[in-house]
């Protein structure tokens, strides 16, 4: 890992370090099978989302009553025109899924980041300062936990009206409590560790103690929970779409396609199956990648992996 960098000029040295780093990271990624699989899956979904315009074969919202419920291309009655078949309105499922990846990813990831930001901030502050601040925040968390997520989401969505950003807001608001509790717990045990005391003993400001010494140390459980959370968020988005309060047409999400297909599961399984598989693979990919990230971000694990 360490090459002779002592003689090189600073610019040369930093260039070498950078290319070295890329190499080390890719080597580390390849060493973990699940990490590689996760990386490929996530990359694939990102690719779909980025090149939806090119990859889609049809206009995803184009209704064609003549081609209702066509099976996938490789089945009897399918046509090469519609690779994954068509839905009850004759829309091309492949194209809908390709476009749907955009919103599903956007909602899943943004909502988790949003919830994570609130939750981590609240958790660190509550855990670090303790006292009344902690009590107020934690009672707030309890209050949130006592309301069923879906009910809270329904109330907010019916007040503000459905839409992508409202949905992200709702999912964030219902989820932050999990992070807050987790992070607070970690901080409580972490702040008794001597390096936190030592940091204060060398005159580090409270704010810096939180940002520099506590935050990085709570990141690994956070990454694990948040990757799992992207999964549940995508699914929660699907259930809200199913209830008619999620993504509204003409916007498309995987959850929306899935719930559209619900009525036809018995006769035309492909309507619900393909978005279901897409959600599963994406979630799996994110979890694998998250797991690997947690391992490599912890310097203690570097020699093992």
């Amino acid at each position: 890992m360490q090459t002779d960098t002592t003689m090189a000029s600073p610019a040369e040295r930093s260039r070498r370090i950078r290319s070295n780093r890329l190499l080390t990271w890719s080597r580390r990624l390849l060493r973990s099978k699940t990490g590689t699989v996760g990386f490929i899956l996530v990359l694939a979904v990102l690719f779909l989302a980025a090149f939806a315009d090119v990859l889609a074969t049809h206009n995803p919202n184009e209704v064609n009553p003549a081609l209702m419920l066509k099976p996938p291309a490789w089945l009897e009655g399918g046509s090469s025109q519609h690779l994954l078949g068509t839905d009850h309105l004759g829309r091309d499922i492949w194209s809908r899924m390709v476009y749907g990846s955009r919103i599903s990813l956007l909602v899943g990831v943004t909502a988790v980041v949003f919830a994570g930001l609130i939750g981590v901030a609240v958790g660190i502050v509550a855990g670090f300062y303790g006292g009344w601040l902690d009590r107020v925040f934690m009672r707030l968390v309890d209050a949130f936990l006592s309301i069923p997520n879906i009910l809270l989401a329904l109330v907010i969505l019916s007040v503000f009206g459905p839409g992508v950003w409202t949905l992200i807001f709702v999912l964030g608001v219902t989820n932050w409590v999990n992070y807050a509790r987790l992070v607070r717990g970690e901080v409580l045990s972490m702040k008794e560790r001597e390096f936190v005391k030592a940091a204060r003993a060398i005159g580090v400001k409270n704010r810096m103690v939180m940002v520099r010494h506590l935050l990085p140390n709570v990141m690994s459980p956070f990454i694990v929970i948040s990757t799992l959370s992207v999964a549940t968020t995508i699914i929660l988005e699907a259930s809200l779409s199913f209830l008619g309060l999620g993504i509204q047409p003409p916007d498309i999400s995987w959850g929306g396609i899935l719930s559209d297909g619900r009525d036809y599961v018995a006769t035309s399984w492909w309507l619900a199956t393909f978005p279901g598989i897409a959600i599963t693979l994406t979630v799996l990919g994110i979890i694998f990648l998250g797991d690997w990230l947690r391992d490599v971000l912890d310097p203690r694990g570097q020699n093992r992996r």
Partner: peptide
């Protein structure tokens, strides 16, 4: 106080194993 700590006033703790941030 913060200006003094680590500067004029320093402290070494009991547990060297946990006194450094592992990350």
């Amino acid at each position: 106080y913060r200006k003094l700590r680590g500067n004029d006033l320093s402290m070494i703790f009991q547990e060297p194993l946990t006194s450094l941030n592992p990350l």
